Computed example of a mutant assay.
Amino acid sequence: MIQNIEEYKDVWVFAEQRQGKIMPVVIELLGEGKKLAKELGVNLCAILLGNNILDLAQELIEYGADKVYLANDEKLFNYTTDGYTTVITEAIKKYKPEIFLLGATHIGRDLGPRISSRLDTGLTADCTKLEIDPNDKKILQTRPAFGGNIMATIICPNTRPQMSTVRPGVMDKAIRNLQNIGLIEELTVNLSSNDIRTRVIKTVKNKKELVSLSDANIIVSGGLGVGSKEGFTLLENLAQKLDGVVGASRAAVDAGWIDHSHQVGQTGTTTKPNLYIACGISGAIQHIAGMQESDFIIAINKNSTAPIFNVADIGIVGDVHEILPLLTEQLNSVEDIKKLYKEF
């Protein structure tokens, strides 16, 4: 398919929502998308699909979208690959965005390849950095490769839109402003029941869904140095006291000490909390890639030469089993953590 790429304008963000709630990665994409749109001199737009979600369209404007394309239909109430792919593909063909960003969530990773295939354009998956080339204004899409040992920068020179899925937790979130003004344009939805091959019979939630590492302000994370499944009780006690969540390295997950939903790192969740406490984690590059953007990092390890100390703001050399109970006793609130911020 031959495209006139000069016709393509604007930066689009897929505004993923689940059960009437905008996913946190969308707020990150709006923040990053605003920077890209400003550099290109175009509008930042969001595309939102669902049913009875007009209030979410206004929320997206408050987070910086200049325009929201709204597909409001009862057949879009639940996410389906067929329904969402069809509606978004038709909208892209009509309005021709230059850049289209999706979160690298379960839904984004399913939806992105389907759309790019139908549009015969490229898709760079799991990006951790996006930039505009100052020379030709193409988007430079950076993602880890070869197990995180190198970073590859990818371009899509000949087709549009330039598509990326972006890893949650790596971009700065947009700031909400209730005074923002934007446009809402409703899309015509031409879907029949036969267009959608799957039906959602029932939604079942489990405890794993309660772990939200990408949204957490405080994470207490454990590695092999924790020693056992029972050792994670020490981390849980501290996390509960600080109103945080428990994370883990891949090694601890592989050992069967904690569920994969808690995994931080290259093959887990990328996090950007205010405070990250790494307990018994040596600091493999794959783990560091998932937590190095934390505002403040405390590392506890018996090995004084552990790589984790290279990214830590405070390093404590010692046994996790001895130090964690002392921290739990002394740190009664986040205010105590703030004292550490000031001292260091």
Rank of each mutant, 00 (worst) to 15 (best):
G41Y: 12
G20W: 06
Y79I: 09
Q58W: 13
L44Q: 08
L44N: 07
N72Y: 00
D10H: 15
L29P: 00
V25H: 05
L56T: 00
V68Y: 04
E74C: 07
C45R: 15
Y8F: 15
A37R: 09
A46I: 00
K21F: 04
D55A: 14
G50L: 00
K34F: 07
T81K: 13
G83W: 06
E16A: 09
I22A: 08
I53C: 09
L36I: 15
G20M: 03
V13R: 04
E32G: 02
L49C: 11
M23C: 10
A71I: 01
E39Q: 15
D73G: 04
Q58K: 15
D82E: 11
K75L: 15
Y69M: 15
P24R: 01
E39V: 14
I88L: 08
K35Q: 13
A71P: 09
L30A: 03
I47G: 07
N78D: 07
N72S: 12
L48T: 03
E32P: 00
L56H: 00
A65L: 11
I22L: 13
E62S: 15
C45L: 08
V87R: 02
N51Y: 13
K9I: 12
V13F: 11
D82K: 08
T89G: 07
V11S: 10
V68D: 11
T80P: 03
K75Y: 07
W12T: 13
K35R: 14
Y63K: 01
A65N: 11
